[in-house]
Design a protein around this nucleic acid. Structure first.
Length: 295
DNA sequence: AAAGCGGCCAACCGCATGGCA
DNA sequence: CTGCCATGCGGTTGGCCGCTT
């Protein structure tokens, strides 16, 4: 592609040849415009050369990072949805700190965002519980409490969405499907066929899910088991999500409660039985979580 | 109102990897 | 085979911003 822009970039590059040392720190709007404009005209790649020709006093690395994490079309920002959070937890169990690999399964999200989410939200909870984020105890907390709760939240949102759209021209199952992340589609490439999962593309299955009664009854065993594990605590599991922000569904009494559970007696902690089997071999998966939410 | 504090996130840094001459 | 270069990845950090005191 050869346009009038070429002269502009050339001129900018020649000006830059005599420029001072490289800039660092936050990017300015002008730099963003230069970078995006150059890439629009010439495409990505050869970042060092790109930085020079675009007239940017930045390293190629810096340009690449700015483009991939911020300027690139399709980059999504803002809070992670429950679907995304659930997927991050699942994939981190599977792949560990392979942020770029995990981010590939979250369209529009960058490895940096996923990494920051893990370090701020997830590790924060581990810290509150005085557990190592890689410890068996914390993994059990995520597996038995956090992930099922996320799954339930997703179902609840889908149900609410289906209810509010019942008068529309589309069917409730179609509407619910539209609200779901692609990972919940039956033929998701990552998770395989997932025939057990609620299938928004299958009216029968999803209609059954939407007909399920209120979510409050989902975790009765939580309350019993955790109260038994930490006598004297008021395990207010149902209230936590009502007022907390979307990604802090367990803030509040749960932290104190689980902190006790994660102390020395953690091995005796009785988690609710979601029928997932033992996690010693780490062989459980999101399928297991979902299969427990079939109604 | 202002200072202190902590959380969050954008950006940087160092290392690993792959392609190519 | 080896060295160089570009790119990718994960860990780390600096600074902004909102909340608390």
């Amino acid at each position: 592609m050869s346009t009038g822009m070429d002269a502009m970039w050339t001129a900018a590059g020649s000006e830059d040849s005599a420029a001072a040392e490289l800039r660092r720190g936050p990017w300015t709007v002008e730099e963003d415009v230069l970078l995006a404009g150059y890439i629009k005209a010439h495409g990505e790649g050869r970042w060092n050369e790109l930085a020079r020709l675009a007239g940017l006093r930045r390293t190629g690395k810096s340009c690449r990072l700015r483009w991939l994490n911020y300027l690139r079309p399709g980059v999504r920002r803002g809070d992670f949805s429950p679907q995304e959070q659930l997927l991050i937890l699942e994939l981190h169990f599977r792949w560990g700190n392979r942020w770029s690999r995990i981010a590939q399964e979250l369209p529009g999200r960058t490895d940096n965002e996923v990494k920051n989410y893990w370090r701020t939200r997830v590790q924060k909870h581990a810290k509150q519980l005085r557990c190592d984020v890689d410890s068996r105890q914390f993994q059990d907390v995520m597996r038995h409490l956090w992930m099922p709760r996320l799954a339930e939240r997703i179902h609840a949102a889908a149900r609410a969405s289906a209810t509010t759209s019942s008068a529309s021209s589309t069917t409730s199952s179609e509407h619910a499907a539209a609200t779901l992340h692609p990972m919940y589609r039956p033929n998701n490439s990552l998770l395989g066929p997932m025939s057990d999962m609620p299938s928004p593309d299958t009216t029968t299955t999803w209609s059954t899910a939407t007909a399920r009664p209120s979510s409050g009854a989902l975790f009765p065993s939580n309350q019993v088991s955790m109260a038994a594990a930490a006598p004297g605590c008021s395990a207010d599991w149902s209230a936590g999500s009502a007022s907390a922000r979307s990604d802090d569904m367990f803030d509040g009494s749960w932290s104190e409660l689980l902190a006790r559970a994660c102390d020395d007696g953690a091995d005796s902690l009785v988690f609710p039985d979601f029928g997932l089997g033992e996690s010693r071999d780490n062989s459980w998966s999101l399928d297991d979580i979902w299969s427990q939410h079939q109604y």
